[in-house]
Design a binder for these strands. Structure first.
Lengths: 143, 143
DNA sequence: GCAACAAATTGGAATGGTTCTAAGTAGCAA
DNA sequence: TTGCTACTTAGAACCATTCCAATTTGTTGC
């Protein structure tokens, strides 16, 4: 199926190959760690999780691999304020809700219809390649 | 008139007083510099502009004063990716368009109706205090 | 399998925007 | 004045990230 947007673990080698890159143990474990727990870890958090499986990995490699995964469109990098970059395995278009109390990030589904409406506010001559929508506030844990 | 959202230069002293803060020459000149040229300068750019009027000011003070102005809701701080924070004198709700070629930021007016629609996608329990919308792409200079 | 080349990883140093700190200055209150 | 507090200042510290130079790993052609 060619239209899937959430890649399976195997997709990694393929995507890398498509870009002329190699599938390495480091890239595999990092990708795996991000898919396993579908939250929004920072590079440091990824580093911590990966070291459980691969204690010898370096932080520089974590940064390098995350950058590679972002280039290959396998994960997305998101920034909130000036906090450390977070990495997001959700490749569908969506907004983020940043909970100020807990610091946690929640994905917010966006209807395609709304995305169109938002893009349509751009004046002529503006060609948007990407759109980032971030809410900030209080989120009560869902019952 | 109590509903104006773009403050006049005089509003500075009032707003500061409301928060129990003093109006200082440094705060005045920084606020003035930001209102004068309505773009999205970084702290460094503000520092450069302010030094024309007040050569002895320090960068730390520029950061301090900008922070104060943000607290008093006289300017807004906006972040793009991990680039230096920019300061925005436009207090109306609006989106930003980040032109990848020139690096410049353009304000995009948002209809109130659209803002409501966007906020309405939040599930129950999510209480958003602020909303940031950023486009990224190519902008042709308007004719 | 081996040489040769390219890609990837590594630790540590460097970078750069921002914040912190401790000292000095300035304005207000008794 | 004497104090008190707010504010400014220079420089050090911070910290996420990137850079660098050296090594390791993988791949390709023989």
């Amino acid at each position: 199926m060619s239209t899937m947007t959430t890649a399976s673990p195997d997709a990694l080698a393929q995507r890398l190959a498509d870009s002329g890159l190699r599938s390495t143990p480091q890239r595999e474990v990092i990708y795996d760690v991000i898919l396993r727990k579908r939250d929004h870890p920072t590079a440091d958090e990824v580093y911590a999780r990966v070291r459980a499986d691969m204690p010898s990995i370096s932080l520089a490699t974590v940064y390098n691999c995350l950058e590679t995964l972002v280039q290959c469109d396998l994960v997305r990098a998101v920034n909130f304020e000036r906090a450390p970059t977070r990495y997001c395995p959700n490749l569908h278009p969506h907004a983020h809700f940043h909970d100020e109390q807990s610091g946690s990030i929640h994905d917010i589904q966006l209807p395609a219809e709304l995305l169109e409406k938002i893009s349509s506010v751009l004046p002529a001559g503006y060609d948007a390649k990407s759109l980032q929508i971030t809410f900030r506030g209080k989120a009560q844990p869902a019952a």
